[in-house]
Design a protein around this nucleic acid. Sequence first.
DNA 1: TCGCGCGTTTTGTGATCACAATCCCCCCAT
DNA 2: ATGGGGGGATTGTGATCACAAAACGCGCGA
Lengths: 220, 220
Amino acid sequence: MVTLPRTAGEIGSATGSAHEQVYRSLRSRIMHGEIDPGEALTLRGIGKEFGVSMTPARESVRRLAAEGALTMSSSGRITAPDLSADRIEELAALRALLEPELAARALPRAHLALIDRLRAINARVSEFVAKQDAVGYLRTNLEFHRTLYLRAQAPAMLAMVETVWLQLGPTMRALYARRNRTDLQKHHRMILAALAAGDEPALRLAVRTDVTQGLKMLVA
Amino acid sequence: MVTLPRTAGEIGSATGSAHEQVYRSLRSRIMHGEIDPGEALTLRGIGKEFGVSMTPARESVRRLAAEGALTMSSSGRITAPDLSADRIEELAALRALLEPELAARALPRAHLALIDRLRAINARVSEFVAKQDAVGYLRTNLEFHRTLYLRAQAPAMLAMVETVWLQLGPTMRALYARRNRTDLQKHHRMILAALAAGDEPALRLAVRTDVTQGLKMLVA
DNA sequence: TCGCGCGTTTTGTGATCACAATCCCCCCAT
DNA sequence: ATGGGGGGATTGTGATCACAAAACGCGCGA
């Protein structure tokens, strides 16, 4: 394999270095439940898939492992994490702690345009629920939350929540199967109503409930 | 440089791979304020210092950068982060959100032995304050908090708080200079009192105050 | 004296290689 | 049929190299 000029496969504007492309791609897969808990990955396999050598593959994997998105055995073997019930509960508690705060910080800046955008995303969520598409549902559901939290202007806090999502990613799809589809949308509607009303306590509660609801099912 | 047998410089039991040693060492320095904001590092420099090649140095640096402990410019230049006031405020808010929760979770498990250990650590904190040793103070102060939070049995939450500490590390020492030394200890004593009394609301408040107090000074 | 090019040096990136540890699978003995 | 052992294949680790881009410094010109 030869060092190609930097413009080889890049489509639009600066896509970033090789290891970043690999990182983003893997991260997205993991966060959206496209990788099963316990599934194994290899550096050479990743490298081959993305057309790069082991070096950027290794950096991506190490970074994801540092963020808890992947597990490395003592011998260095790479797998998607299979979370214990305790760990899931803890991560759920983190979401319940952080996300209402982010929502509350976003509230004063939530104009009508944002609420409309959220409604549109929520419509797409409904489609995926109807189509029983777990990955699509996870993706749009997280997009709903992220779109709201982006308004909080709190990048470090958002990054932290996304790390939690990442850790929960592989487990999420399994979780989706058990979830009661009908009241999925109810919580999002409560969030939208509280946003429109400018009611912070209601918003905090709605977000906390939405976050907690789905995750507590796994433990039960 | 030659690949040495794995048992080369290892003292006790498995110290971990080369990049992990480098990572732990750098992380400790950063978290305890031994690196100034804006200070530059180089992969070859790190490698030379630890007697390893660029590869493990690079992995350590990338990992630390992913955790926000180091900044990488678009050209890949490595520096310790120089935080904006907004960012500091946000990280302080994260501490104020997470640490009371960890303390509250530790409370039911906080036996007398733990409180005694905390008192002992607190005494060492006082020594460093008296000696005007900023790094020593930072180290023992964080040890005080970590010892308490370890009892919460919440590894993911603790990891998250430590990431916040890490990001604040380089800025912390500058902060220390402005801090009113006399009421530093007051808050720790309040924490100990609330722990001994088993009073959760008081504990949450004491932790939140301790955390907030020092950090709000930078913004002012 | 100050600013600005240009060449040298430094620095990060990615590929490749040697190596040791581990895993996997197949075969054989019981 | 089943369990254990052994050998080949796979895998992560770290060193080294080539390369391009950025940084630095030095000297020349205004």
